[in-house]
Design a protein around this nucleic acid. Structure first.
Lengths: 388, 388
DNA sequence: TTAGTTTGTCTATCCAATAAACTAAGTTAC
DNA sequence: GTAACTTAGTTTATTGGATAGACAAACTAA
């Protein structure tokens, strides 16, 4: 019960092997000598651990490097295609999937649209998408290392979708369904968490330790990366900052609260206001903005302000290094950025004391999908570290 | 630069020594055999590490226990008075100090009131309080292990008070001042963080891994304990949830934002509303409530509702196991609890799915002081683990 | 008294990291 | 073109912790 994992020699070896592997992942190509220097491990130790990694098909020698006055170094690199993963972004009316290698480079992508919401047909499409991607996977030592999925809703620790309002799902055991069919490790998480991870690893958030990703789509979801790690609430779910109330006695929200942020700053809120202007969807709205239609520009400025109001709250609470605006609304950047930035500066306690960057997603619509692939990759490495 | 601490035998020993010590701290009195069983470490290993702890004056044998059919076990316990710490709660018009042993048992306490706010006189009083407590400390192996202080403001990683609005302090290097004078390790943190720690270790939050402590005094501060650890924002400060805006276009707050929570739910907000009734301070207000004065009861019910509005936001964002209401307003429990609880239930997304407990501080006004002592104790153990 | 049990220590062994010596394979100066 | 120097990577002997198993000590039960 209280059995903490104890320290023994195997633990040391695991720790040091992980250090060597991570050093290579970060700095490849590297020689054994460079790894020794960077990691602080003895040359002999590095040699031995590198040999294990080579035996495990995770690292390979790629020939000699240039000499600096002595024997030429043998350069090493991580074998990115030692395995592959599948990343999926399950949206309300689309599925995006990617087959990637273990560094996250995309090998194949698929997008398909959904016209039904019920779990059965959606899962059938999910299977089709995965099957198609699997058929493109080249043979490799580790094969398919895992599947990651981002979904627009609350996910618990067992990988069940507790509640996805826009899909009208409740209690769908997605992880079990997928791992039963494919016999692979499956990671399920909120779409905003996946997006946060995608931007942190591959996009606007590289090298930023603490960031908040705000996914502005039909609703608003948020993914938090604190001290380089995805933060999950106590029970393993979070990302509900769309339901932060910004107007305690405002419009009632379906969640039970009143004046929730996403009722003022989401795509849905924007389109409701645009309806009287005869605009039905985001694309035509952005086209109208492009054309300089003034009522539309005013609407977008207002959305920027409301986004800023919620972001100021988030900054006050979490004090992150960056906030990244992602998902569909990031396309509206040219017309919302000014009012958004102004509002955040006005409303953030001691803003000048902070170094908060306001950024927009670099991966655009691919953030969540790439983040889902990264979830699977991270799962692979976690299992690896635990095993050797 | 990228030098991660590498794994060697000393690391193993540190890890296992910490396991043994923690096993004793949690379950004392224990025999070596019991420690071996609970920790999973070999009997011989435990014997050797226990001997080190005995040599280090951290553990002692306290005679034999009862036999269960064989040789009698030698029982061990942690030497709580191997050292002492000082915990201080620096309030706006008071200082509370405690001298405690390494388990957090109070040996002596002092409370004194302040009538000036400037750093110099306050620090002079702080010195007096510390000196008085120090003079009561019995001799011990480790002496005074450290000083912990909770302050009503923003504290950075270097232990400087960046900004304490109610004290009107800016940039006071409190840690340096104290460690220069006493030559001891000093930990400075926000008063709400200290209170959260105090309640988690000694009060209503025992055995709760994830909790939010809401310190409702003149303003509102919050301390977050996530996965058993105090959460600090990216730059080492947080606790600003009093400035979560609950009414985007409400009253302007001195922080720059509008409609901040603490403008509606704090002691100051309550007293402003009570002023027309001729009530000037919290004590007389509570007395009036006790006497059943209806206008006062209505005011308190309203405060309960506003507290609930902010707490619902916090629950939606952090999804903690418990929320603890602390500081002065916790005295108003009988008159605010009903409306508070109702509001939180109404406004929390999927409240029925959660297991959030709403609690009131058990340590009352002593939460922050005891938490400050705990900060010093934790610092002592951290340094210990790093050294051996 | 005897047999069995539990506690705690002792001993031999294992294993990973390490320093230092060593081999291999280059460069540079003249 | 050779001698002197450099750097890369391996080999060897040593160190230090954890461990299993043997053991002694101290007890209970019958």
């Amino acid at each position: 019960m209280t059995t903490t994992p104890t320290g023994d020699q195997a633990l040391i070896k695991r720790i040091n092997t992980a250090i060597v592997l991570e050093t290579i992942l970060r700095g490849a190509p590297l020689s054994r000598a460079q790894i020794s220097e960077r990691s602080g491990l003895n040359k002999a130790t590095v040699s031995s651990l590198v040999q294990d990694l080579i035996d495990g098909s995770l690292v390979r020698e790629i020939g000699t490097g240039i000499s600096s006055g002595g024997r030429k170094p043998v350069m090493l690199e991580f074998i990115a295609n030692a395995g592959h993963t599948i990343g999926l972004d399950l949206g309300v009316n689309y599925i995006r999937g990617v087959l990637s290698d273990l560094r996250g480079s995309a090998i194949a992508e698929r997008t398909l649209s959904l016209n039904r919401l019920e779990p059965e047909p959606v899962i059938a499409e999910l299977f089709r998408c995965i099957d198609a991607l699997l058929s493109e996977a080249p043979p490799s030592s580790y094969g398919i290392a895992g599947i990651g999925v981002g979904v627009p809703g609350l996910v618990d620790e067992s990988g069940s979708v507790l509640f996805a309002p826009n899909l009208k799902w409740r209690g769908v055991p997605l992880r079990r369904v997928l791992s039963d069919r494919y016999g692979l490790p499956v990671t399920i998480d909120n779409e905003a968490n996946a997006g946060a991870l995608g931007e942190q690893i591959f996009g606007a958030g590289r090298r930023i330790d603490n960031l908040v990703y705000v996914s502005v789509g039909i609703g608003i979801g948020t993914g938090l990366i604190l001290h380089k790690n995805l933060y999950k609430g106590a029970s393993g779910f979070s990302g509900e900052m769309g339901h932060l109330s910004v107007d305690a006695f405002g419009k009632p929200c379906s969640c039970g609260n009143r004046g929730c942020w996403e009722m003022y700053a989401s795509e849905r809120a924007l389109l409701e206001k645009a309806a009287p202007l005869g605009i039905e969807d985001l694309d035509s709205l952005l086209a109208a903005a492009e054309a300089g239609r003034e009522e539309v520009l005013a609407l977008l400025e207002e959305i920027g302000e409301f986004l800023g109001i919620g972001i100021a709250n988030i900054v006050n609470v979490f004090n992150p290094d960056a906030v990244i605006i992602g998902n569909r609304m990031s396309q509206a950047r040219p017309w919302i950025e000014t009012s958004l930035r102004r509002t955040v500066v006005q409303r953030t306690l001691g803003f000048h004391l902070r170094n908060v960057q306001l950024l927009f997603a670099e991966l655009g619509a691919r953030s969540a999908m790439m983040g889902a692939a990264q979830m699977a990759i991270a799962g692979f490495f976690d299992r690896l570290k635990a095993s050797l």
